[in-house]
């Protein structure tokens, strides 16, 4: 009960703060606030997009949760999504035009393998050469991001398009739509399934248990005969595969082509979601919906009234800033 009270207090505080910011920076704060809160649900298009964004965020957040649970920090999410999406798209373009379900499956699998491979490099380096995965994944990501930019805008650029993009995938590669004309496809179902499966593995199966023990105390894990090679590489592999899946799904459901920088931010948001969800795959679902709502909310507020791009950044930043703060002393946690 006190939990609910805490949350209620906090939410009131949230609303007051957001409203105060809007009062300060927007010429029409009331309208901006209404657009921000209800905008995502004002028409089917926005609602569908909210779900579509949430779906991708769930997958990213779940993946990061797994590596966090193993005590590993993967900062290379940005490139793992982006590069594997490009590889997936290229494979899709190489397949015959009417590949349909089979083609979609191949694209997804190839992207997952690419993402997993990139992340595994960091895992391998960590295990074999004791190079911190945080830094190796970050540097590899920095290099791969611009390499992918280069490949998209030069080698594989669609010369007919003015965007920096590859050619579009044929329509048989589009995932079935749920709420036309929005971007929502069956991704949301895939995302929830992935979260559930990984939750089950993590909390109900021996492998997941061993991995969590490894994450909490490496010496103890060694003592218990838990393979440190396995649980350094596997979590990052799963994490990378999730990012690859997210990239592939963004391509197959929304973009249909790899556009320069299209996935920017999802890697970071994955980390944020995992942290909010306390590394629990199931809890990434509400956390992802919250971030997706903030994202779509700021977009509709921008489209509807006079909230500018930088105001939307400020609002998003404030919400991130507040989300983990605990404004009331938690007496029990004082030890």
């Amino acid at each position: 009960m006190s939990r609910l009270l805490h949350s209620l207090y906090l939410i009131v505080l949230f609303i007051v703060i957001i409203f105060t910011i809007l009062l300060l920076i927007s010429p029409e704060p009331v309208m901006a606030f209404e657009d921000f809160v209800t905008g995502p649900f004002s028409n089917i298009y926005n609602t569908g997009n909210l779900f579509a964004i949430a779906a991708i965020l769930i997958i990213c957040g779940t993946g990061v949760s797994i590596s966090f649970q193993a005590g590993l920090f993967n900062l290379g999410g940005e490139a793992q999504i982006y590069s594997s999406a490009l590889v997936g798209t290229l494979v899709g373009l190489a397949l015959p035009e009417g590949s349909g379900f089979f083609g979609i499956l191949v694209v997804i699998i190839i992207s997952m393998i690419t993402g997993a491979a990139i992340a595994t490099i960091s895992g391998f380096l960590r295990y074999r050469y004791h190079i911190h995965e945080l830094i190796s994944s970050f540097l590899l990501s920095g290099g791969l991001l611009s390499l992918t930019d280069f490949l998209i805008s030069n080698t594989f650029r669609d010369s007919k398009s003015f965007l920096q993009t590859t050619s579009k995938l044929p329509e048989s590669f589009y995932l079935p739509s749920i709420l036309p004309p929005s971007n929502l496809t069956i991704t949301i179902l895939i995302a929830c399934t992935v979260a559930c499966i990984l939750w089950f593995w993590l909390y109900k199966m021996a492998g997941g248990y061993e991995m969590r023990v490894f994450g909490l105390n490496k010496d103890f894990a060694e003592f218990g005969n838990i393979s440190s090679r396995r649980y350094t590489i596997l979590p990052l592999m799963i994490n990378g595969a999730c990012f690859g899946l997210a990239g592939a799904l963004m391509i197959l459901s929304t973009q249909h082509a790899a556009i320069v920088g299209f996935s920017a931010g999802y890697g970071w948001n994955g980390i944020v979601i995992a942290l909010i969800a306390a590394n629990n795959p199931i809890m990434t679902i509400p956390a992802a919906f919250l971030l997706a709502w903030v994202e779509t909310g700021t977009r509709t507020a921008m489209a509807g009234s006079s909230v500018s791009l930088e105001m939307s950044e400020v609002i998003r930043g404030m919400i991130l800033l507040m989300i983990t703060l605990r404004f009331f002393k938690n007496r029990r946690s004082r030890s």
């Binding site: 944020v272 791009l309 950044e313 991130l320 703060l325 605990r326």
Partner: peptide, 29 residues
């Protein structure tokens, strides 16, 4: 921001990312 995060037992990684988002926005404003 560090003091605020620690006083209210927040997560410094998230608040740090938040600062990265907030500062350019506030500067533009």
């Amino acid at each position: 921001f560090a003091g605020l995060t620690m006083r209210f037992k927040g997560n410094i990684f998230i608040t740090g990312l938040a600062m990265n988002l907030l500062i350019p926005g506030v500067i533009t404003l």
